[in-house]
């Protein structure tokens, strides 16, 4: 196990370097007109000129140099070292505040709807997936599978729009679209995030449902399940005690696979329900062409994804010894 952990940790390092390099290349790709648009967008409140802006983005030095500066392993123009290594992601061009500070302000609500969404996804997915597998090729299975594909196919932005629209048409009820902090009013906050989280969870559950069904089917064909049947155990016991435990191990890995989908979902949901989270932050940063903020958010998201995938892999290896030794 220790060797496996070390191997996985070592793999992270080239990944972090490459990810930051991809971000640096992205900033490089900016066409000149985009710089002009940034200047125009930053507009009235700043006296940025082109050279200063290019300087602050690191576009006036070579690509490796720009990257090294951003990472904090080469001195900035003023001779100081301040970059990722020092915990500095730069200063937002538009808001004129450190990127780290903005991220700290916007992440809680995103985390909240993501976690609730993930839980709801499992609550929907597991029972239907297990049922579908136990009743393979019956009408119940067909309905379950179609339901799963339906959940994958309906875009979150339409479901969310309908969730706002339908109550208005039917009951003339409009849910208040105001933001309540978790620390101010926990119950009010939960009420507010419930609908967005459910919609987020629904979108995720389709994939998990299919995965659960597949792995459950695979496990149900194992010899030890036949033994359990032969012992005369009831279906409920066979399914829950013998099959489910082993069927759920691969399902864990799908949480890692779903994270990018989840993050994409939060962007859309936050936009529709006007929640001040990371998603809205990156939309406005992209629209205002605030590329220091954009690169900061991308970097943080990439690191978070990597770490969670690491945790998922380690959990998987812990639960299934076969993975460790391959």
């Amino acid at each position: 196990m220790r060797a496996y952990i070390i191997r996985r940790l070592l793999l992270i390092i080239p990944n972090v370097i490459l990810v930051s390099f991809v971000i640096a290349i992205l900033i490089r790709l900016l066409p000149g007109s985009a710089i002009d648009a940034m200047l125009a967008g930053a507009g009235a409140d700043v006296d940025l000129d082109r050279a200063a802006l290019e300087h602050s983005l690191g576009l006036d030095v070579s690509l490796p140099h720009q990257w090294a500066r951003w990472m904090g392993i080469a001195p900035q123009a003023d001779g100081s070292y301040s970059g990722v290594v020092q915990g500095n992601l730069g200063i937002s061009l538009w808001q004129k505040r450190p990127v780290i500070e903005l991220l700290a302000k916007y992440w809680p609500i995103t985390l909240e709807i993501s976690v609730i969404g993930l839980i709801i996804a499992q609550l929907i997915a597991l029972p239907v997936g297990i049922f579908s597998a136990l009743r393979q090729d019956t009408w119940g299975d067909y309905v379950g599978r179609s339901f799963a594909i339906l959940l994958i196919s309906i875009p979150a932005f339409w479901v969310a729009t309908m969730a706002i629209l339908v109550p208005v048409i039917l009951w003339d009820y409009m849910p208040p679209l105001m933001f309540i902090r978790l620390s101010d009013d926990a119950i009010g906050n939960l009420k507010m995030v419930m609908v967005p989280s459910i919609i987020l969870g629904m979108g995720l559950s389709g994939m998990t449902m299919r995965m659960t069904r597949t792995t459950m089917l695979e496990v149900m064909r194992q010899d030890y399940i036949r033994t359990a049947w032969a012992k005369g155990l009831r279906e409920r016991i066979v399914a829950s005690r013998h099959a489910l435990k082993n069927a759920l191990i691969p399902v864990i890995s799908i949480v890692g696979l779903q994270l990018p989908v989840l993050i994409g979902g939060t962007v859309i949901i936050e936009q529709i329900f006007s929640l001040p989270g990371m998603g809205r932050l990156i939309i406005s940063a992209c629209l205002r062409r605030d590329y220091t903020l954009v690169s900061g958010i991308m970097f943080v998201y990439a690191i978070v994804l990597m770490l969670i995938n690491l945790i998922v892999d380690l959990t998987y290896a812990y639960l299934d010894p076969r993975v460790r030794y391959s």
């Binding site: 990944n15 990810v19 994409g264």
Partner: peptide
């Protein structure tokens, strides 16, 4: 590295 970024973002 490419797949480390969330797709939509």
């Amino acid at each position: 590295a490419w797949m480390c970024f969330p797709g939509l973002i």
